[in-house]
Write a protein that binds this DNA or RNA. Structure first.
Lengths: 209, 209
DNA sequence: GCACTAATTAATCAAGTGTATAATTTCAGA
DNA sequence: TCTGAAATTATACACTTGATTAATTAGTGC
């Protein structure tokens, strides 16, 4: 009776593998399906090992959430590119409503985590951070775009616009990621860009470039 | 050793109680906290009784979801009232961004269920129904409002508007229900109404009445 | 090549889960 | 008041969960 072979891995690698396995489990089986055993199997590892890298399962899940949110917002922000505020905002929007930001897997994971926010203070805090950061980014870009276009607006008005824009992007992201409607026949990018331009009081034709 | 007293209840009452207890459990403790024993306790009943009214826990949860979504959309639609399409749409929006439709409890429950949609076909179907119905309502109202205002738009354009409006309402509902931002100093109803009017190409001052 | 440390496995535990079933109680009808 | 059927409780079972610990293996420095 021989034990199964294994080899040592650097701490960072193992942690990443475990987090990736956790996110995969959640995406496919839901939070309830992300058991210690399931995660360990997917990571090609034994359940007991998890405890060496994460104090307990709660920590593992929290770490997975931070990684997920961080990667998701990074992917969205990568769409900004370099250029005018206008092109940055347009790029952010484009990225937000297309893959890999907008897809079923991301939605599943996001929803699973959101469901815990109300009953888990640790999750609530981790969530608040990521959310706030994204909305601040939108608020800044929206303000700059309006300034570029010569649209005058008070800080209060800009803030209101940001709230609306953020809500719109969130909603579109959910709708598209859910994939219920036949979005293949609808140009969601165009719809998103035009809507944002309209809300900012900018000519849609000028906004998208 | 005497058993605890109890009394018979009509089937509908017991089912309602069990569903209400399930939703309460989910709202406070998350889906994982909604165990058979927890639900039974809240309903003032013994765990075994659940099986008399629902074949298994999965059925109970699914029934709770349908009740929840049904009640939520009914509360939103109640805001429509009777009158012009304009006032109906405005009423729907007003109701969607204020309590009891928009509040933390509803968001918690919604999120918990959404998290299961991807891994549970039964939940996916139950969800699709409720979602589709709401978007059809918005599409109809939006079309009527534009017709009232003399704004000409193709069916395709109306459909696009409905997608955007639905996304905006969803996003605002989430933001407000999450309660992260200091919405006490922001008139969310006004923001929502003005945004929708702008997106439909209608004068905001005329839209809100 | 050898020992030593750290990483990993394997096996086990107590607690909690959904489910099943038999024993009891309630209540309506005669 | 009594009886029978339906509703409810109590108890138990098999299984899964996260956690713990001792035994074993891999790799590093000498």
């Amino acid at each position: 009776m021989t034990r199964r072979a294994f080899h040592h891995e650097p701490e960072a690698v193992r942690q990443n593998d475990l987090i990736a396995a956790t996110l995969d489990s959640i995406a496919e089986l839901g939070l309830a399906g992300a058991t210690v055993r399931e995660v360990a199997n997917r990571a090609g590892v034994t359940p007991g090992l998890i405890r060496r890298y994460f104090d307990n399962k709660e920590r593992l899940v929290a770490a997975a959430y931070r990684t997920f949110i961080s990667d998701l917002t990074a992917a969205a922000e990568a769409g900004c590119g370099e250029g005018s505020a206008n092109s940055k905002l347009a790029g952010l929007i484009r990225a937000s409503v297309t893959a890999p930001v907008a897809d079923g897997r991301a939605l599943s994971i996001w929803a699973a985590f959101i469901g815990t926010v109300n009953s888990d203070p640790v999750m609530a805090e981790a969530h608040r951070e990521g959310y706030q950061a994204f909305r601040d980014l939108i608020e800044r870009l929206a303000g700059e775009v309006m300034a570029e276009r010569g649209v005058t607006a008070s800080q209060q008005e800009i803030r209101s616009k940001a709230i609306v824009l953020n809500a719109l992007l969130d909603g579109l992201w959910i709708e598209i990621s859910m994939g219920g409607d036949d979005f293949s026949r609808v140009d969601v990018v165009r719809i998103a860009l035009d809507s944002v331009a309209t809300l900012l009081g900018i000519d849609p034709a000028e906004f998208r470039e």
